[in-house]
């Protein structure tokens, strides 16, 4: 009779196995961890989908069929790629854990409405293939797959995903044909009023326009413990700290509130940076990770040629995760383990 190494033996297994065995254990004892919560990848991913609902709603309300088009393309490509790469690796395709769907959707929400079809399709295929499957599948990847896919698409098709894609969608998006608030501020110092910026009546990637929607969905994830609250909290605090020197200088109307609501900061902090695979394990590590993310976004926005830096900030912080994990190993109860040589 074999005993599961991770948790108690399921009841039916114990019952059927006890019939031929002469001595059945009255109490089944297995080494920990003993998980009692019904936590599963599928439940977490379904939570993320629920959390993304407000963003999807805002995206559809604002960009109409263009938003639906981006989401359909990227999600389909991600799911098909997941199936294809699982087949190539000789593994059962884990489509029902919804992780591929979430990757595709997060990627789609980070694309501009005017992006051509191949940006989402190639981006999602790269996200699943080069971002995840090559490292050994879900849970093994170093970098956030959706951001890997977006970076690939951005380097491959700079015209389709660069600043111009936001400004002049040639397919005629009636509602918004203006620069994103961050691009406008970077290029001409033009400050978008905080109201539209927070609610989402601005141009941008289809999922990033409304900080309110990201906040709502993100708080739901935090309450469900699907996303660790330390990461967005650390990111917002770091963004605040980065705004302090600007406060002393005064004179600008671009405030911390603008910085927090503009671009993909809220979306990235709540939905992308909190990916459990590519973020640190310890609470202290999560604070560091979040703060580093916020600081990098602030620095890229202020001192680089790019108007927005959420994607780069996440990829850079992903690369630091093993280091953060090693640096924040908690001291076990009863003091540190004695050094054995």
């Amino acid at each position: 009779m074999t005993r599961s190494p991770h948790g108690p033996v399921p009841r039916e297994a114990a019952v059927t196995a006890s019939a031929p065995a002469p001595v059945a254990p009255a109490v089944s004892v297995a080494p920990g961890p003993h998980l009692h919560a019904a936590a599963s990848t599928q439940r977490m991913m379904a939570d993320v989908l629920v959390g993304l609902a407000p963003l999807v709603a805002v995206a559809v309300a604002q960009f109409r069929q263009h938003a639906l088009f981006q989401m359909a393309i990227a999600s389909c490509s991600a799911v098909v790629s997941e199936w294809l790469f699982a087949r190539m690796r000789g593994r059962p395709a884990t489509l029902w854990d919804l992780s591929a769907l979430v990757t595709g959707l997060i990627l789609a929400l980070s694309l501009p409405a005017g992006a051509p079809w191949y940006a989402g399709a190639v981006g999602a295929a790269v996200a699943i293939g080069l971002g995840k499957a090559i490292f050994g599948g879900l849970g093994q990847n170093l970098f956030n797959p959706a951001m890997v896919g977006r970076a690939f698409a951005m380097i491959s098709f700079p015209a389709a995903l660069g600043a111009s894609a936001y400004v002049s969608p040639s397919l005629g998006i009636e509602a918004v044909t203006s620069a994103t608030p961050l691009t406008a501020f970077k290029m001409s110092g033009q400050v978008t009023p905080i109201g539209p910026l927070f609610l989402g009546a601005t141009n941008g990637s289809i999922g990033e326009t409304s900080a309110l929607a990201a906040l709502l969905g993100g708080l739901y994830l935090c309450f469900r413990r699907t996303a660790p609250w330390e990461i967005p909290a650390g990111a917002i605090l770091a963004m605040g700290a980065a705004a302090l020197p600007g406060l002393a200088g005064g004179g600008t109307t671009w405030t911390l509130a603008h910085d927090l609501s503009a671009g993909a900061f809220m979306y990235g902090a709540f939905f992308i940076a909190t990916d459990p695979v590519t973020s640190p394990l310890t609470p202290r590590g999560k604070w560091i990770f979040g703060a580093g993310f916020g600081l990098l976004v602030a620095m890229i926005r202020r001192f680089s040629g790019y108007p927005e830096g959420v994607m780069f900030a996440i990829l850079v912080m992903n690369a630091l995760v093993p280091l953060i994990n090693r640096g924040t190993i908690p001291v076990p109860v009863g003091g540190p383990a004695p050094q054995t040589r």
Partner: peptide
Amino acid sequence: SERVWAPWTVMILPPGAFI
């Protein structure tokens, strides 16, 4: 048309070579 298909700039850059 750029809407139909476009060359992948990344493939002529060093990262494309590595990939």
